[in-house]
Design a binder for these strands. Structure first.
Length: 282
DNA sequence: TCATCACCTGGAGA
DNA sequence: ATCTCCAGGTGAT
């Protein structure tokens, strides 16, 4: 029986889940939907402008059980041991959805810049404990945004995706509350009907905002990890780009191997490999 | 079902 | 200076 470490804020923010966070002094200030959140490591505190910060770090998960469940080999065990304070975050679904639509074929700094631009142009300025910043735009606002305004946010070819995706939410075609209730595969299929959302982006949205812990986003880094440590375990992993069908087959193998909390395993593995390559996030 | 290719943009390296 | 390549993929042939 192992003692579970407390949340490590910096580790968690720098693990590839979120973009709109900045360290100011010894605090982390971030945007989550219509909330501004202030995080302090020591003494630990998490305050939200709307007092709606419930289980932002998934405190309701049985972490002890999950960590023991995913530690099926030395690789994951090492990854967990290396970043015991790493947590999955429960993000605002709409922000998460737009964030990862923007992430396609882009770089961290670029993605962050796009999202900041969206907040500045379409968000609502809010003040909280002496910090003032714009929150994330609401779906109805982005749904009505002009292509000119969206393009000015430097979204590039993603401008159209963001608009259509926002319209889908505004019209109710995409209903996050509903997606949270239904099973993983049905939620993924629904998300993939949206232009700009493929398997990887759908998995990110599902894992980081829809409580789908069997989601296991496979990006370039994950692919490298699988190739490096798990080549023998999975038939469908190659160095070639992951096509849609390959992705689905690979995901099946992955869930069979890592189990229902595969998403947690992905997060620890991802963090381990990023650190190994000295890649920073925010 | 699979292989190619283009794609906005910004930064890094040749 | 200019070019090429790449970055947490996806969509269209």
């Amino acid at each position: 029986m192992r003692k579970i470490s407390t949340v490590n804020i910096e580790t968690t923010i720098n693990s590839g889940q979120v973009f709109l966070w900045n360290k100011i002094g010894d605090k982390w200030i971030g945007v989550d939907g219509q909330d501004i959140i202030i995080l302090n490591q020591s003494p630990f505190s998490a305050r939200s402008s709307s007092n709606g910060i419930n289980n932002f770090f998934r405190e309701d998960d049985d972490l002890k059980k999950i960590l023991s469940n995913i530690s099926r080999d030395k690789i994951v065990a090492r990854a967990v041991k290396q970043s015991p304070g790493l947590r999955l975050m429960r993000q605002d679904p709409f922000q998460c959805y737009i964030s990862f639509i923007c992430s396609s074929n882009s770089s961290i700094q670029n993605i962050k810049s796009m999202l900041e631009n969206l907040c500045k142009k379409f968000g609502t300025r809010q003040e909280f404990k002496g910090y003032e910043l714009p929150t994330f735009p609401k779906a109805e606002i982005l749904a009505k945004a002009s292509m000119k305004d969206l393009t000015e946010c430097r979204l590039g070819f993603r401008a159209k995706y963001v608009k259509e995706a926002s319209q889908a939410v505004d019209s109710g075609k995409i209903d996050f509350a509903q997606l949270k209730k239904i099973d993983y595969q049905t939620a993924i299929d629904s998300l993939k009907n949206i232009l700009g959302i493929g398997n990887k982006v759908a998995d990110c949205i599902a894992l980081f905002s829809l409580d789908k812990m069997e989601a296991f986003p496979i990006d370039r880094w994950t692919q490298r990890i699988l190739l490096k440590y798990y080549k023998k375990f999975f038939d469908n992993v190659t160095e070639k780009p992951v096509t849609e069908k390959k992705y689905e087959k690979l995901h099946e193998e992955i869930v069979k191997y890592f189990g229902p909390y595969a998403g947690y395993a992905q997060q620890f593995l991802f963090k381990m490999e990023r650190d190994l390559n000295e890649k920073k996030w925010l």
